[in-house]
Amino acid sequence: MTGEASVAAGSTIDALGQFELHPVLGHLGEALRFSQSPLFMLIAAAVVLVFLYVGMRPAAVVPGRLQAAAEISYDFVHDLAVSTIGENGATFFPFVFAIFFFILAGNYLGLLPFSFTYTSHIAVTFGLAIMVFIISILASIRFQGVGFLKHFLPAGTPVWLAPLLVPIEFISFLSRPVSLSIRLFANMVAGHVLLEVFAGFTIMLAGLGAFGHVLAIAPIAINIALTALELLVGVLQAYVFAILTCIYLREAVAH
């Protein structure tokens, strides 16, 4: 949402400027290709780790608020992983936890003014999705051997349908990382573009004098509602990404 600052003062709204990458730390950042996107990834990871560290520091039998929050986060993802993946869920639980909170923290940090939403970059979401894809393939080979390929022909299918079904199943398999990454990317981009556009309306209306100042309340009200919606979308998309990861892993470890 840094975009507010970059809204053109004139008649156009630069809705996409907020997604531009700029090096941070000057020349060093430029040399290391270190933009604000990895900076916010670091911040997100640090926030989650500090939250867990500070929350669990009392290690009390009867938890306080922060400890209860940390334990609920743990239990929530743990239940999600174990109930979806099955008995091997505990193995993948740290991975699912990392995925869920990396995306959730990214989505929520992006809602703060002057911050950057790294989940609004297709390169990042596709990277995450490809990682899930590769790990689920590796898990398939690890748990089922080459036999996992039989998933491409659903059980009980007549053999003469195989030439039709196997390519379909294979394409749907390959499309998983695409849909996984585009779903998150598109949701975050859409939300932030909307916020930017309505913020731009506010500034444009404010330029119309006293009458415009009154009218400018409307886009502000919409932005407040959109922010609430984005809070919902942020956690929902993280959840969807995590649960789809769990579903792919369940297929991988199922015998």
Binding site: L21, F34, A45, A123, L128
Partner: peptide
């Protein structure tokens, strides 16, 4: 920077994990 963030993202996510 676009590719850079993917590489950095992999490093940061790995460390996070």
């Amino acid at each position: 920077l676009l590719i850079g963030q993917v590489v950095w993202g992999a490093v940061i996510f790995g460390g996070f994990y």
